[in-house]
């Protein structure tokens, strides 16, 4: 595979930095798809995001991203006003995360004061990103392929239920990563696929007593 001219002439993005602005917006957007409707979001800035993020609009890009604003949308610059309008609360602080890229953030989503979801992600440069932890579970999620995120009980037959539904739906699995903290407790599964997934298929996956939640990214 050679290098595409669109990697050189691109990405089209809101400045000033592909890692600190465009990548940050993308991280926010992907993370928000893992959370339910939220009314408050907290951003823990790590490393270079904490040190030079402000000058690069990393805060605005992250906040815009969680509201679904894309990295090439000039609305990023107005993220604070848009969040206030939508009555979404937000907060930024510095954190030190371990074993993670220099440009990283911990995003926590809340509803009525209750924690919904906690996501750690990194901006790798050139607008590329990687979600590495969801609610403490180790994952690898780049957002470059359509991705299904499942929370399930760690028990026999759950994964075969998921793969059977996907196979019957004509979906090819590109990668799959299962992660658990303890045996027979909650586990997660990140599945990257080659095709877009329809709502009905996600419902079929969810239709299993051992599956708690299914998200499509």
């Amino acid at each position: 595979m050679g290098v595409s001219i669109f990697q050189v002439a691109g990405p089209v993005m809101i400045g000033p930095s592909s890692s600190h602005t465009a990548g940050a917006a993308r991280l926010g957007r992907i993370a928000a798809k893992l959370a339910d409707d939220f009314d408050f979001v907290s951003f823990g800035l790590h490393g270079s995001f904490a040190k030079t993020g402000k000058g690069h609009g990393t805060d605005k890009a992250l906040l815009a991203g969680v509201m679904g604003i894309r990295e090439d949308d000039e609305a990023i610059a107005d993220a604070y006003a848009i969040a206030d309008e939508a009555t979404i609360g937000y907060e930024f602080h510095d954190v030190e995360l371990t074993g993670i890229h220099e440009n990283s953030v911990r995003i926590a989503f809340y509803k009525n004061g209750e924690l919904l979801c906690k996501v750690d992600g990194s901006s790798l440069g050139g607008g590329e990103v990687m979600i590495s932890r969801i609610n403490g579970y180790e994952v690898e999620l780049s957002g470059n392929l359509p991705t299904i995120f499942v929370r399930q009980l760690d028990t026999r037959g759950v994964l075969s239920h998921i793969t059977t539904v996907l196979a019957e739906g004509g979906i090819n699995i590109a990668t799959m990563k299962v992660s658990r903290k303890n045996r027979s407790e909650e586990a997660t599964c990140v599945i990257e696929v080659d095709e877009e997934i329809e709502e009905g298929l996600l419902k079929k996956i969810e239709n299993n007593p051992n599956i708690y939640a299914v998200r499509f990214i």
Binding site: A9, M13, G15, P16, S17, S18, G57, E74, A77
Partner: peptide
């Protein structure tokens, strides 16, 4: 434009 958080096309980078 890039420094003002405006829209640009990286060529080959934003800077």
């Amino acid at each position: 434009v890039n420094a003002s958080m405006g829209k640009i096309c990286a060529m080959p980078t934003a800077g």
